[in-house]
């Protein structure tokens, strides 16, 4: 028996919005410790890694490990039926071929039950080693989304260069070029508005704007985003999901011919 309850269904809606650009279907691996999802996009260029800890749910029970393959388009249709203030409960029996979603309004005046068929998906998990990154940039997530949107007007790819002075985002194409530099903030009132750089060595890497823009669909989940970079390894873009967990995106760099 699996059962996971979130008072704020809005969080699950936002999680779904954050992954459905990159993935059409995915397997949710449920265990005693929580819900994990790891999947690559069709081109095997980016990877989504979602971790929702069991202790972050308002109620959580998972008697046996369970892998639930879901079509994310269909899951989106169901989650759209939940009111923003509704509580959501996901339930499945052991070895079930369906997952149930129950939405309850604030005073339980309205209770809606939906069932969705599960799928058997071929899963390919990549082993991602613990890495000490040369540069870790923490910045406001909305600022990162804005930069990705603005620079993708200039070219298909964008360079991210990090030094101890700051982080520079640049792009170039037919219409011209764009450069945005962010300095580390000296002092800020609100922690979520800060730009913080932890640098061991300067790094400059180039990435496809299309994927970065997809990652920024997670912006509503967190006020801050963390970019982890080292030479010649994939970028990690991480959004915390409150006390519940995190979503990480991995993106392979582009290499000059």
């Amino acid at each position: 028996m699996f059962e996971a309850r979130l008072v704020q269904s809005a969080i699950l809606k936002k999680v779904l919005e954050a992954i459905k650009d990159l993935l059409t279907e995915a397997t949710f691996d449920c265990s005693d410790s929580g819900i994990q999802l790891q999947a690559m996009d069709n081109a095997h260029v980016s990877l989504v890694s979602l971790n929702l800890r069991s202790d972050g749910f308002d109620k959580y029970r998972c008697d046996r490990n369970l892998s639930m393959g879901m079509n994310l388009g269909n899951m989106t249709k169901i989650m759209k039926c939940a009111g923003a203030e509704d509580t959501v409960t996901m339930k499945a029996q052991d070895n079930a071929d369906v997952v149930a979603f129950m939405f309850e309004s604030k005073n339980q005046e309205k209770v809606s039950d939906y069932e969705m068929k599960l799928m058997n998906l071929d899963q390919e998990h990549l082993g991602i080693p613990e890495t000490d990154y040369s540069c870790i940039v923490k910045m406001p997530s909305q600022e990162f989304a804005r930069i990705c949107r603005d620079l993708s007007q200039f070219g298909e790819s964008m360079a991210i260069s990090c030094t101890k002075e700051g982080v520079k985002f640049s792009s170039a194409g037919d219409i011209g070029s764009a450069n945005i530099k962010l300095a580390q903030t000296a002092n800020v009132d609100a922690e979520e508005e800060a730009v913080v750089i932890e640098m061991q060595e300067p790094v400059s890497l180039t990435f496809a704007c299309r994927y970065l823009n997809s990652f920024t669909k997670a912006t509503p989940l967190s006020a801050q985003v963390q970019l982890s970079m080292s030479a010649d390894v994939p970028l990690v873009v991480e959004y915390k999901i409150g006390e519940l967990g995190h979503i990480r995106y991995y993106l392979a760099p582009k290499i000059e011919d």
């Binding site: 095997h44 991602i128 496809a208």
Partner: peptide, 14 residues
């Protein structure tokens, strides 16, 4: 121009 690399170049299937 820059070549897009796949993740398999960095991480192997478990």
């Amino acid at each position: 121009t820059a070549d897009q690399i796949e993740l398999y170049a960095y991480y192997l299937p478990d």
